[in-house]
């Protein structure tokens, strides 16, 4: 055993938010590759549901489904992304409680909410990779061709699911406060199907809902081949505004809920 001092005169440097993001992302990667059953299971389940949707729909609707297949694939791609973003924070909080590590994230000098957001964003990155794989398999399975301008898709899909990340943030906060409600909140992810297929052209106000406007833009990008710079500035501004708005809403709810959980003494009690 060593007998020298632990720091040996070296003064530790403060970590930056960039270093926090890097470590959180790296941890997410490590957890992803070291829980292969979880990683592969999620992909298999997503593809199974798509298989049921595709082959079942083909039997029932026949050509009508084939005609709208590209739209369904884009929508399903966005839905898998959304589910990952929405459940990322509340699931992560549940895991941290189970692992006994939540308290250490509450005590961090970065603040609980920024760290939770950082971890949620890391999960979104992970979800992007798995959803991209699911997209590729869906295209191969259905022999469908879509345009995938990477920058356009990443930007539009990214901002689209930031709004859902905001909802997930709120759900995470409520999960901290009311543990049982968290499971019910997870059911809301099926409501994303409605948002993704919202009639934004007929009902303009639905563009203010999460996902709806982004979904419409993503369809144009992947089916019509519209590039990012070809969209109207107002469309892009609305995309960003909705994303920021819902994220801010989720952040405020999360802060309020965790503060109330601390007052009630239920933080970390599952």
């Amino acid at each position: 055993m060593s007998t020298e001092g632990l720091d040996d005169g070296v003064v530790p440097r403060r970590a930056s938010y960039a270093q926090l993001a890097k470590q959180v992302l790296y941890r997410e990667y490590l957890i992803f590759v070291r829980y292969p059953a979880n990683a592969v299971g999620g992909i298999v389940i997503a593809l199974f549901f798509f298989g049921v949707l595709f082959y079942g729909g083909e039997m029932v609707a026949g050509r009508a489904l084939t005609d709208s297949l590209a739209g369904i694939i884009v929508g399903y791609f966005l839905w898998t992304l959304s589910v990952g973003a929405y459940s990322s924070i509340s699931n992560d909080i549940g895991s941290e409680v189970q692992w006994g590590t939540l308290e250490r994230h509450v005590m961090t000098p970065f603040g609980f909410a920024p760290v939770a957001l950082c971890k949620g964003a890391a999960k979104v990155v992970r979800t992007f990779l798995t959803s991209a794989l699911i997209l590729a398999v869906m295209l191969a399975l259905t022999d469908t061709t879509l345009q995938v301008p990477v920058v356009t898709v990443v930007v539009i899909a990214g901002f689209s699911i930031v709004s859902v990340l905001g909802l997930g943030f709120a759900a995470g906060g409520i999960t901290v406060l009311y543990k049982q409600v968290g499971n019910w909140l997870n059911l809301l992810q099926f409501g994303f199907v409605v948002l993704i297929s919202a009639p934004v052209f007929e009902l303009g106000w639905t563009r203010l809902l999460p996902l709806a406007h982004g979904s419409a833009l993503l369809q144009r990008a992947m089916i019509d081949g519209t590039r990012l710079w070809e969209f109207a500035p107002a469309d892009l501004a609305l995309l960003v505004g909705v994303a920021v708005g819902y994220l801010a809403f989720g952040y405020v709810v999360f802060q309020y809920a965790t503060r109330r959980a601390r007052r009630l003494g239920v933080l970390g009690d599952y």
Binding site: D7, R13, R14, A15, Q19, L20, Q23, T108, F110
Partner: peptide, 10 residues
């Protein structure tokens, strides 16, 4: 890092 310290420095 979560404790606010650059891991390379420690």
């Amino acid at each position: 890092t979560v404790s606010g310290v650059d891991p390379d420095s420690v």
